[in-house]
Design a protein around this nucleic acid. Sequence first.
DNA 1: GGGCTCCGGTTCAATCATTGGACTTTTTCG
DNA 2: CGAAAAAGTCCAATGATTGAACCGGAGCCC
Lengths: 146, 146
Amino acid sequence: MRRTSFETMHCSIARTLDVVGDPWTLLIVREAFFGTSRFDDFRRNLGIPRATLSARLSTLVDHDVLDRRIDPDPPTRPSYTITPKGRALGPVMVALMQWGDEWSGVGEAPVTLLDLDTDAEVEPVYVDRRTGTELRELRLGRRLNR
Amino acid sequence: MRRTSFETMHCSIARTLDVVGDPWTLLIVREAFFGTSRFDDFRRNLGIPRATLSARLSTLVDHDVLDRRIDPDPPTRPSYTITPKGRALGPVMVALMQWGDEWSGVGEAPVTLLDLDTDAEVEPVYVDRRTGTELRELRLGRRLNR
DNA sequence: GGGCTCCGGTTCAATCATTGGACTTTTTCG
DNA sequence: CGAAAAAGTCCAATGATTGAACCGGAGCCC
């Protein structure tokens, strides 16, 4: 049977997972985020099978997370670049990375984030926009709208 | 062929996706996060097939994201509750939710987050711990450690 | 106690997705 | 020109998901 679609769920988490909720997709987005743009570079960096990569790139382009265009000047090959919508997945990747750093027994964090302008290390933390309180200490609940 | 395991990748995102990188898992964690604990409640709330739910719950328990124990008092049934390791996935779900709110065309945000103590609305934003700069405005790079 | 229902699964066949490898086509490079 | 690389497609084999049917123990009801 076909994988269940979450489109109809009235839930933003479900709808996001409908786009990026498979094992490979966010790794592809990660690569694109940090500059990978060519088919074979994705393939080599990730070790993903060609057919799978081809399928994922197509749906990412369909969802406007990546942009596919042919470079006019040689080498004349497709180039996959991240869109604003794709770049907005940064926080998702940061959150996944921090959880892996802390809980997956990877040891020392494999990657440190940097501010590209100042070259300083960056440590993202969630705070409440209004109060500035760190989210770590908040007990979160939810209210269903509508 | 079996789904590729990301265990050996020296990357925290990949290792996290090895645990929660399939379409259903994070929805199950979301349910557990907000209090669902019984097999049939997960099934009804999500519309997930029994066999799939059974498999996912098992791996989540194996990974110590959920805790399974039998309630001693009747009705004597298994109860799945979220662990600290599972609760630490909160930021991942927040990031997914915010992206869905903004980019998935869901309309008004279906859910508002609340501080359970004060009942005030909470809007989580990522800032750099050191500088307080919002992550949105940063151009992010990475440095590979080791 | 006997039957009924509910809950939490397991089992099954069908279909879908993923994988590794072989193959193709176009482009680039020497 | 000839070789090699890049970007896919095609294929058979194997897993994973799905919906439906089945199952077994715990409560409940008379």
